[in-house]
Design a protein around this nucleic acid. Sequence first.
DNA 1: CGCCTAATTGAACCCGGTCAACCTTAGTGG
DNA 2: CCACTAAGGTTGACCGGGTTCAATTAGGCG
Lengths: 253, 253
Amino acid sequence: MPPRNTSTIAGALALAKSLIPGLPVGGEISRMLETVPGVRLAKVAKNSDIVIAGKLYDCFYVNNDGWLFRYKILHNGSRQIVDFVLPGDVFALQACLFKGSLYSIATVTPVSLSVIPFAQIDHVFETDPKLSKALFWSATCEAARLAEHLTDAGRRSAYERLSHLFLELFVRARLAGMVDEMSFHMPLTQELIADALGLTHVHVNRTVKSLRDDKLIAIDGKRLTILDFEALSLLSDFESSYLGESARAMRGG
Amino acid sequence: MPPRNTSTIAGALALAKSLIPGLPVGGEISRMLETVPGVRLAKVAKNSDIVIAGKLYDCFYVNNDGWLFRYKILHNGSRQIVDFVLPGDVFALQACLFKGSLYSIATVTPVSLSVIPFAQIDHVFETDPKLSKALFWSATCEAARLAEHLTDAGRRSAYERLSHLFLELFVRARLAGMVDEMSFHMPLTQELIADALGLTHVHVNRTVKSLRDDKLIAIDGKRLTILDFEALSLLSDFESSYLGESARAMRGG
DNA sequence: CGCCTAATTGAACCCGGTCAACCTTAGTGG
DNA sequence: CCACTAAGGTTGACCGGGTTCAATTAGGCG
């Protein structure tokens, strides 16, 4: 039996190549990882919790396909969704680092995941600069998204919040290769959107209706079309650079 | 003249030792860095912008003394403060990584900073695991704080938000060695607090009054005293582990 | 077809915003 | 040493975006 660290690191190395921004994501990663020891694939049904707040974890994940969300439940029962997880995203790293996971993570749709044993982070940082860099970049982008979500909840109207969220999801879906023309499959319910934006599902409904009436977006079933990217950007101060399509100093290699 | 990278990395290495959680911060760091080539000290007056959103930067900072805040201005003129920067905190890293800084950063009080040339992040990750680890941990903690701030703005009442913020600041101040008994110097104006929590300064004023009337906190000038830590924690779902006093897998060394 | 979940709409209500004073404190200059 | 000023804190009256409660309609699926 090979030493466990080695296999972990080997898997991690292969993974790192996929994580550097600009490289293809999705199906590519999962095929790459299938042959790597220490990293296993998992399929999870929709509406399932994968991580429970407060519990300890020893693995983190890369999402290969499907949508998930990270959330917190407060004492009065209300829920705050802090982020959505799209294909190509790393998640649950914090669940390995803190004494207990800071939030819960659940699936929206059926998902396909790569499960990466965390093992010894010290060893990773000492021996694998590529993975270190990828993990750092992932944490940086996550913080950037959270700051935008905070700005949504703190200082934007419902109309602006919806606009901003739809643009973020659109650009992220495009980076993940999930966009066709100006539309993409957006499986979130209005209740999920409400809990992400700090609104009620009732008001999300009314606001989505206004956005449609104003011809800024169109919704057909679970398919969302951006009709006026420019107008939505202006009214919601959307500036996509925080999504990290191109970093200055984090080239792959 | 020595190659620029070497001096940078040398400085960074010394810095890294100070960044690992659990080690002393504040005056310790500044003295340590004074002798390090490539890292310089800077004093900045209160109410000064240090980073402007959208501009490019080649240095990041460690705060040795004083308070700062990171913020964003929207097209309608409103401001969202995404985080406060206390002694011991790293900041402006994102300003080096993205094409332009995602937010502005300004001082609340006079501050004393260490300025670290960012130079080649690739080189850092390939040669300096300790600094890499420290940077990663810093980004992870920042994301954790932002998620809590998002929860404040999204799903907590004004009363709960104030409670949660005061507890966060108290615990962070304690980690930075700035707390005496249950009180500390808290130089924020009600307007800064309002912009951090997504409220108006008028409503912050009324809510602070309720918290005082309810004997949960006391305020004497700029000095804040936590009178009932337990009650404040319960009513605001405060659980301090997100502030990263102790990580599971990120020991120094 | 029947069941359950999600979307939609209406009406009444309220937390926090807005507008507008006024007060207090600290700093400044004569 | 005090008058003046500016910034921050405090309070009142009114308003409105978003919530709450409740009922109805549409969609997805066994």
